[in-house]
Nucleic acid binder design. Structure first.
Length: 817
RNA sequence: GGGCGAGUGGCGGAAUUGGUAUACGCGCACGGCUUAGAACCGUGUUCCUUGCGGAUUGUGGGUUCGAGUCCCACCUCGCCCACCA
């Protein structure tokens, strides 16, 4: 019996596949297409880690299954090597990010080939390749030309080590400090002129588009919450001579407004300070609030405020004079930064009113079912104490009150979104330079018009100049500002101008990479439109749950904009999405280098082989779940493959199999097919194990069955399957069209799977008491007779006093007595 | 505090979607092979009970001939967002 020498087997076939690129996807093929995508890795370490293997293996098995079922499959990958992960890794080694990015791409590619992934390597892309980011810049200019990319003074998180960071890059640690996602540095708030993309303009589209895609409901919910649509109204309160706009979703509670509250940063606060009796105190409060570190704010948590004494707001409908507060619980960057305080019907306002002894005025009568002691009542109800609107239901009152406000120019309907402008510049070195210049007069100009094709090819890419100084400057400006020669340039009219020194965030390249895979080597266009028409949308997009909001939502925004300007053919980029779970360390903790509990795919391949590694990942649990690693699992798959390998000697020259083997085989193919259709790779591996347990116990395996089994094994263990296939078929010379991976998925025989006789349980009063063997289509009365004839049944059932009898065909017999 | 998801053996998990709960694997135990170990092979393995039998899918209730699966309440854990008016 030949030993399972996985190294020899894997090395034998790997080069042949990739040299001949047998996994190539064919543009415009007659076959139906399937575009399966797993999020491309961002290289941040020497080698791919187990997380990458987790994210790729199951989708890859699925893509192989589809290929064997006659689909023209696109399963591509590339490297998202811009940004801090790669830059940080390079700096640690005191090397240039350019050099490191290239090396990592090579290493990662080799590692993915070692795993045997069926990737079309002709479409490999790298976001840091000038040939790629030429088009990232070009697409950015499209946003700029359409007024969706703007320079704007934005509050940013500032960190001396990393420069400025966006909200998405900030975490809150256990003590409530804001820290950077990478490196866990402390950060604080400051204002900075930044590029933004006007994502909120697409908020409605991003919401309605969700109705047309096939994402799991939790992902849709998360995106909706992130967008955070609120339908409400702007209502104007007069303070002194100024009209202050407040945003509310509860116009129906307007008559219950007993104060007005402003964020400390609200522009009118300056004017209040001038006029209020307690100006000095307000000033002090505001300064303190503005300079308060987040740690302090978090620690306080309590709502505080200060009243502007001597100043009143006028209620727009009752003309009642209301106190005006500056408070820490109103956010300047949501709504208008000002609210009407309705303590009787809002929890936060209630807290605040109780603390400062403000009037609490009920204006909504809750439904009778509501517990009276629960205050504030925040639901809808019937209006009371609301003048002419009393007696109306909330829904109607909102409409009527708005009507009246509108007539008097005191308010109007308004929809707000939580989602903010997307801060799209970074003060980092390692990113795509933003291709604009500042003219002498301060105007901003694109370095090229995207419609001017000839010039586009001359001007773009705007290459990132070489530099080893990657720290931001003390004033917060980007490292590229150091390169005076590069910064000094000319505008379109030949006058002196300065280049933008900020670069794009890591998300830039990954916001459109799925488009590039359709036409990865096009030097004339970002992608040929006809090819996009063939390949889009991505049929199934796999990735991490951590990307549900930022990457997945924001790249939908890019795509929708591209659709609007006619450069992509589909309204949505991804038809279906599945989030993968995490693999924890064997101790149940998160894997981390610091804890030394990581599992390296390279080591697994070395010790057990790539096929065993792939199968272990598939077998250990469902793709979407999180569970700990288990070394025993890969020992099991390794053993399984060894057993399969040794079965070669049992293949019968006479094509003889016993009945059990034939049946087990047909069940295997049936179940495996169903499981692959539904990404249940873990139970798929179980089925293979069951079948192997059957053939282990026999002497002969018929040729037909062996052939079909190799095909069924191919998506899971591509190396061993190829080796078995080539030797079974007796091919002496490699020809790519003879690869097992380009063959058809096996079929099963329904008649064999279906038993003539089946065993079903007999239930008496809900308890299983016996089993009977019946024929598949035996009729009810005969089944009943058979059941009653059983000793164990007659013990409990007298045929005279059956209250109820039931036979579910082929499933179960049930008596109630 | 809000949203989402999940609770099944010692462990990872399975259950044709309302029809014999615990498939498959890990681990463990016993046996074989070995000078010995590793590897390998075989048998057993939800719990209680010598047995007959009984109990069991986080807890309590409900619907049903029948519930891990559906409904209600509660408990626990995980993830995301958190003063969003």
């Amino acid at each position: 019996m030949k030993k399972y020498n996985f190294k020899e087997i894997e090395n034998k076939w790997k080069d042949k596949w990739y040299t001949d690129n047998i996994y190539a996807a064919e543009d415009f093929s007659e076959k139906p297409k399937k575009y399966i995508l797993s999020e491309w890795p961002y290289p941040s370490g020497k080698m791919i880690h187990i997380g990458h293997a987790m994210r790729y293996t199951v989708p890859e098995i699925y893509s192989r299954y589809l290929r064997m079922n006659g689909y023209n499959v696109l399963f591509p990958t590339g490297w998202d090597a811009f940004g801090l992960p790669t830059e940080g890794f390079a700096l640690k080694q005191k090397r240039t990010p350019q050099e490191v990015a290239e090396e990592l791409a090579r290493n990662y590619k080799k590692a993915m080939q070692d795993m045997g992934y069926g990737i079309d390597w002709d479409r490999e892309t790298n976001s840091t390749d000038p040939k790629y980011y030429k088009w990232t810049q070009w697409l950015f200019l499209k946003f700029f030309e359409h007024g969706l990319a703007k320079l704007k003074e934005m509050p940013v998180w500032w960190c001396p080590e990393l420069g400025n960071l966006a909200d998405e890059e900030i975490l809150t640690d256990k003590d409530g400090n804001k820290i950077s996602e990478r490196g866990s540095h402390k950060v604080k708030r400051k204002l900075f002129k930044q590029w933004i993309l006007k994502l909120p303009e697409y908020a409605e589209r991003l919401l309605s588009g969700l109705e047309t895609v096939d994402y799991p409901e939790p992902i849709k919910v998360a995106q909706r919450n992130w967008i955070g649509k609120s339908v409400g109204a702007i209502i104007k309160f007069k303070i002194g001579n100024e009209l202050v706009e407040v945003f509310t979703t509860r116009t129906d509670t307007l008559f219950g407004a007993t104060f007005v509250a402003l964020a400390p940063e609200h522009p009118i606060v300056e004017k209040l300070i001038e006029k209020a009796d307690n100006a000095a105190d307000i000033k002090e409060y505001v300064n303190k609030a503005k300079n308060m570190s987040d740690r302090e704010k978090q620690a306080l948590k309590e709502k505080t405020g200060i009243e502007a004494l001597g100043i009143k707001a006028t209620h727009p409908l009752t003309a009642k004079k209301l106190p005006v507060f500056i408070t820490n619980y109103i956010l300047i960057d949501y709504g208008t930064g000002a609210i009407m305080g309705v303590p009787a019907h809002d929890e936060r306002d209630m807290d605040f009113a109780q603390k400062y002894n403000l009037e609490i005025l009920d204006v909504i009568a809750p439904p009778k079912t509501h517990n009276k002691n629960e205050r504030p009542y925040t639901g809808y109800g019937t209006l009371i104490n609301s003048g002419e609107f009393s007696g109306l239901k909330s829904e109607k009152a909102i409409e009527k009150i708005l009507e009246k406000l509108g007539k008097n120019s005191l308010g109007y309907p308004k929809i707000t979104y939580k989602v903010r402008d997307w801060v799209f510049s970074r003060q980092h070195y390692w990113g795509e330079p933003i291709p604009v210049v500042y003219k002498e007069d301060g105007q901003i100009e694109a370095i090229v018009n995207t419609e001017d094709t000839a010039r586009v090819h001359k001007i773009l890419p705007l290459e990132l100049p070489y530099s080893m100084e990657h720290d931001p400057l003390p004033d917060g400006s980007a490292p590229l500002a150091r390169l005076k020669d590069w910064v000094e340039t000319k505008d379109s009219t030949g006058r002196p101008a300065k280049r933008e020194t900020q670069t794009m965030p890591t998300w830039a390249g990954s916001s459109w990479y799925y488009l590039r895979f359709a036409d990865a080597n096009n030097e004339k266009e970002f992608c040929n439109y006809e090819k996009l028409k063939y390949w889009l949308p991505v049929d199934h997009y796999f990735g991490g749950a951590e990307h549900t909001t930022v990457h997945l939502l924001y790249s939908r925004f890019w795509h929708q904009f591209f659709y609007d300007i006619g450069i992509v053919p589909t309204p949505e980029p991804y038809q279906k999405r599945t989030n993968g779970g995490l693999l924890l360390a064997e101790d149940g903790k998160k894997m981390s280098k610091r804890l030394g509990n990581t599992v390296e795919p390279g080591e697994l391949i070395e010790k057990y082989g790539a096929d065993a590694t792939r199968m272990a990942i598939a077998f250990i649990g469902p793709y979407t779940d999180t569970y700990p690693w288990n070394e025993g699992c890969i020992r099991a798959t390794h053993k399984l493959l060894g057993t399969i390998n040794s079965m070669r000697s049992k293949v019968s020259e006479n094509n003889e199999s016993n009945k059990n083997v034939i049946k087990a085989y047909n069940i295997l193919i049936k179940k495996l097919t169903e499981m692959l259709e539904n990404f249940k790779m873990n139970t798929g591996v179980s089925e293979i194990m069951k079948f192997v347990n059957v053939i282990k116990s026999v002497d002969n395996i018929g040729k037909d069955i062996w052939e079909g089994f190799i095909l069924a094994l191919a998506p899971f263990a591509p190396f061993l399957a190829e080796d078995l296939w080539q030797s079974f078929k007796g091919y002496s010379k490699w020809k790519s069209e003879n690869s097992v991976h380009l063959q058809s998925w096996p079929k099963y025989n329904k008649e064999i799977v279906r038993d003539l006789y089946i065993t079903i349980p007999v239930q008496i009063n809900g308890k299983v008491r016996d089993e009977i063997e019946i024929e598949q289509d035996e009729d009810e009365s005969s089944v009943k007779e058979k059941a009653l004839a059983r000793e164990k049944v007659s013990k409990y059932v007298d045929s005279k006093n059956i209250k109820k009898f039931m036979y579910v065909e082929g499933k179960i017999v049930s008596f109630v007595v």
